[in-house]
Design a protein around this nucleic acid. Sequence first.
DNA 1: TATAAAACATGTTTTTTCGCAGTTTTTTAT
DNA 2: ATAAAAAACTGCGAAAAAACATGTTTTATA
Lengths: 243, 243
Amino acid sequence: MHTRSKISILQTTCINCTQTNCIVNSYANSESNRKFIESKKILKCKKGQQFIMEGAMVNGLFIILKGTAKVFRTGINGKEQIVRFAKSGEVIGHRGFGTEEHYPIGAVALEDTLLCYFSKELLQEALLNNAKLAYDMMLFYANELNRSESKVKTISQMTVRERVIDSILYINRKFGDTDGYLNLVLSRKEYADYAGTTEEQVIRTLSTLKKEGLIRTRGKKIGIYNIDNLKAEISQHNFFLDS
Amino acid sequence: MHTRSKISILQTTCINCTQTNCIVNSYANSESNRKFIESKKILKCKKGQQFIMEGAMVNGLFIILKGTAKVFRTGINGKEQIVRFAKSGEVIGHRGFGTEEHYPIGAVALEDTLLCYFSKELLQEALLNNAKLAYDMMLFYANELNRSESKVKTISQMTVRERVIDSILYINRKFGDTDGYLNLVLSRKEYADYAGTTEEQVIRTLSTLKKEGLIRTRGKKIGIYNIDNLKAEISQHNFFLDS
DNA sequence: TATAAAACATGTTTTTTCGCAGTTTTTTAT
DNA sequence: ATAAAAAACTGCGAAAAAACATGTTTTATA
């Protein structure tokens, strides 16, 4: 069962925000960004709710205040490719900021989620008035690009088994685990959509890994028994380690 | 046979540079960037020469003044994944600009090439002093990210045949054709490394496409006969069109 | 807590892709 | 122009992955 949000007072400004890894938050106190910061809106999003539709007009940017989301692109026959999972403090919707007028991705909340929303116009103004903010955003994109290109290689060169292991380690790295089970619970289908394979293939691989004593499962939940052996299996691919 | 460079006078500043689509060039006249611009060095690079080594320290950024290059990541058993092909005016080496200290990619000149080189320190200074430059760099990264994530989906969901067609169309779009053959001549191996498959598979696919009257080949050269039918085959995947 | 729906699981078949080995053609360098 | 090297091609068997079919367990909800 997912945790229901317990936040009752919705902050309307960033000034007192406790989010430490938010790219905007770092500049909340800057006078030049006041207008931008104050334009922020907070959205409540139920579990399973889609808050960015693929192909919709780009009109702003989201930052997760609390919660989790998956970001994806829809392919042939509606098959979705999950591009990344996002947690508190992370930016979503930034992909439409280039020459694109439409969001090239969709986003769905994986649990009840609170989103900060900034309008495109004011964000652009803030970026052009604050070189440091623009620079930091640039670095954010650069890292995302690095990750994405690394993923191209992963999907292109790894076997299904390796990609499933890689996915489990990614979820572990990003969301951690509690009481022996990963904190973010995904369906086998979602693992498949992230790893670029089919649901059955993921299920089979997990069964095998379970028999081999590398992981354990309990319903949808997955726990890692032997992280070193898991890492060892894909280490040969990661000549220079990626986030 | 590739064209030998005929440039005899090497410009040492951007002021009179004729390159129109260079991101730095647009700010060449700005006084604040003078120091940065003047730090530029020009490098000559022979065909086949590797000018960025994977894993080397990031110490600067390259912009192609004249020529072509391939950018790649090396995977298991030395199998390379070509991430993109770059032409005049394009930035290379920017992937190491985030938190990374080492280039996550390698780059090789595909013909005799002239490169502009900017030191990391001065570029950073320029970015922090010029919000517009940082903003434009951010947009550049955003577009690259968009392309890369699109490629993840392509490799994940398309068949080998579709990926080969997609690659041919990409080369056509980016480098154009003359006298019925694509301007950029790549080996079958390079097509495979870009499309995420094997050399034999590319050869097989090209043979079939030839028999079907969609393309023609003459040695390494590839020509497109029926671009609309080629596009039609992959159009179903590109719900929202990508560059 | 009963029940329906969703998700997990596994065996079988089919399709796709890969890898090897040998041949021919093209390119490159002398 | 010619020889050597590199690249392109082809067929075939093997392996990997996907698709299909069907049963079981878990989860959500009335």
